[in-house]
């Protein structure tokens, strides 16, 4: 745990490579399932040039990082901590696993755990929040695993497939995150020593 905030077992969080990554991200744009889970606006294609500009701006404003597998160093997604309120010590987080084969296998969950550790231990935040579309049940399960709690439902925000969809708000407080660390810490330490 002392080799920096951004190193996990399955994934590392690394800076965006503005030359290479926009191309990957443009590829994910063609996956409409991904687009619909990632953003509320109509799914459109962004050119690699515009993608690059967008990520240049995003990484300058907040903490936007690429999720990369530790083993084969594959770029599989993106995670972003932004919207900082330094008086309330709060921020929001957004995450997307663009590579379809890497969904539902714990990669995103670990990336989220890494960014929460960074938020609470590195930036001294008191709270992190997120929005998730109600149809994205896999993501909701992952956020619950990370300790996020349900904080309400914004009704009928999204209008797609001729239907209205809700957005779920979730949040985690520093005190809740710290409680969970106590539970998590015990087992991994013993496991590492045994190995």
């Amino acid at each position: 745990m002392n080799n920096g905030f951004f190193k996990g077992n399955l994934v590392d969080l690394v800076p965006i490579d503005l030359d290479k990554d926009p191309e990957n991200i443009s590829k994910w744009d063609c996956d409409s399932e991904f687009k619909r889970q990632f953003d509320i606006v109509p799914a459109v294609m962004y050119s690699p040039i515009l993608s690059k500009e967008w990520y240049e701006a995003a990484s300058a404003n907040g903490a936007t990082m690429i999720i990369q597998t530790t083993k084969e160093k594959k770029v599989i997604g993106v995670i972003e901590l932004d919207g900082f309120d330094w008086a309330a010590r709060s921020a929001w987080v957004g995450i997307g696993i663009g590579e379809a084969n890497y969904r539902g296998k714990g990669y995103g969950t670990e990336a989220m755990q890494l960014i929460l550790e960074y938020a609470f231990q590195g930036l001294n935040l008191n709270r992190v929040n997120l929005n998730v579309f109600a149809f994205n049940t896999r993501a909701i399960r992952s956020y619950e695993k990370c300790g996020f709690r349900y904080e309400g439902t914004q009704r009928e925000v999204i209008y797609k497939e001729d239907q209205r969809w809700d957005i779920i708000d979730m949040g985690i407080l520093r005190s809740e995150w710290e409680e969970r660390q106590k539970i998590w810490e015990r087992e991994p330490v013993e496991w590492v020593q045994a190995a």
């Binding site: 309120d85 309330a88 309400g152």
Partner: peptide, 26 residues
């Protein structure tokens, strides 16, 4: 308007934390 969400301790005001509420109307 209906109170839809309540983000705990999301606002700091006059030295204290308060919740942030979303209100919506259809």
């Amino acid at each position: 308007f209906l109170r839809e969400t309540q983000s705990r301790q999301a606002v700091f005001h006059n030295g204290k934390f308060y919740d942030q509420l979303t209100y919506g109307i259809l």
